[in-house]
Nucleic acid binder design. Structure first.
Ligand SMILES: [Mn+2]
Ligand SMILES: [Mn+2]
Ligand SMILES: [Mn+2]
Ligand SMILES: [Mn+2]
Lengths: 219, 219
DNA sequence: ATTTATTTTTAGATTTGCCTAAAAATATAT
DNA sequence: ATATATTTTTAGGCAAATCTAAAAATAAAT
């Protein structure tokens, strides 16, 4: 089946929203897609008719297996193209999202798989998010927010929860990127800000909001 | 300005059709785009309102300078992506056209220019057609049909006039591609077929129709 | 110069994806 | 439990891009 770019964006957004949540609401999706709730309801009816999600009016909705499969495939394409843009075309990690937002809708199956091979089957995209394989399988790394990480223990930055341009800009400025190794040296309960140490660099401070959105793994 | 994929396809098709012709007709464009004449008329009104072409009802039409500029930029993207697909992603030259037909509509200026740099500024696409530079300049090679080429003179295949999948398939089978060096050994006036010799390969025969569509240059 | 054929345009519909404004259902607060 | 607020859906419309069928203009043939 081939779906419109718009439908694919809906499926992708629902997929992300339903992580954790038991059910996704019309308003939440409207906010995520920057659209009006009435438009969401319209599209939900179509997606339901196409058997991509479960939906009863006024009761929220959730992708079924078929919907999830499609969503994961879009996510695979999005992340592969982001990897391509950063690692082959010299883009910064903070400027690839919008372009990948278009590239993810290309429909050729062979294109994606050849791209994957050309890139040598990367495991994660430039933001640290895992790239599903052609079967849709991927490991969801158990990563934890820097805010909850113990003091004086080496951590490796593995992802960024909020991927706005502003956030990525700020991290770039503070020399934090995917793979950066750092330790939390101090936590200030007053404002929940943190002091971080990266080897060979002066100590830096990040706010609670930043720390919450930086995901790390051990080591 | 940003134009819809549909409008870009119209501009590109008109650009190709108006080569030679003094004016393009509604039916010719309908045939090229596989659409109904009524749809063409609708779109012509819109493109005229956007000042991309000259059009008076019942009198045919032609791109103006602005329309040509847009068309050439789409063609640049189309050919760069074809080059990428063949030379980086291992596609055959006969399977890239449809995919490039989608890729050519990506709007990021930086994407095209970085791709161009990554590919090291190729001069021609996999079918031998010249790739315009970022200013829209390109050399239209003076190439001649193999049908009109003299006997026993070394020629280099530089392009293919008819780029249907069937034609490209046939050339592939006969081991003819862009850059292939060959000589015309004999012409049979009965059916205008040709006998060709490629070094280290047995002599082959091509029909008048094939020869007419194979473009060559000296050397 | 008429008639006939062809080309092109208009008129009116359809589909997709979005919107605003109003109505209906559900949730919250008193 | 009732009133109030919030969420969600419906009703009706709009713009883009296409189509079919009919009308109008142009071209070709007698
Ligand atoms: Mn998208
Ligand atoms: Mn990403
Ligand atoms: Mn196209
Ligand atoms: Mn080409």
């Amino acid at each position: 089946m081939k779906y419109s770019a718009s439908k694919e964006d809906y499926l992708k957004a629902i997929y992300h929203l339903q992580e954790g949540q038991s059910v996704v609401t019309t308003n939440a999706l409207a906010a995520a897609l920057q659209a009006k709730p009435a438009s969401i309801t319209d599209m939900l009816k179509k997606l339901k008719k196409e058997k991509l999600l479960n939906y009863e009016r006024y009761k929220g909705f959730r992708l079924n297996n078929e919907g999830k499969k499609v969503a994961v495939h879009i996510i695979r394409k999005h992340r592969l193209w982001e990897y391509f843009l950063v690692n082959k075309l010299q883009f910064g990690w903070d400027e690839v999202h919008e372009i990948a937002e278009e590239l993810e809708h290309l429909s050729s199956k062979k294109l994606v798989d050849q791209l994957d091979a050309f890139l040598e089957y990367p495991a994660t995209d430039p933001h640290g998010d895992p790239i599903p394989d052609s079967q849709g399988r991927f490991i969801q790394e158990r990563q934890v927010s820097l805010l909850d990480y113990p003091l004086n223990k080496m951590a490796k930055v593995s992802g960024v929860a909020s991927q706005t341009k502003e956030m990525l800009d700020l991290l770039q400025h503070k020399n934090i990127q995917i793979g950066t190794r750092l330790e939390v040296k101090r936590k200030f309960p007053f404002d929940n800000s943190l002091e971080l140490k990266i080897r060979n660099q002066p100590t830096i401070t990040v706010s609670e909001l930043v720390a919450k959105n930086v995901m790390v793994k051990d080591e």
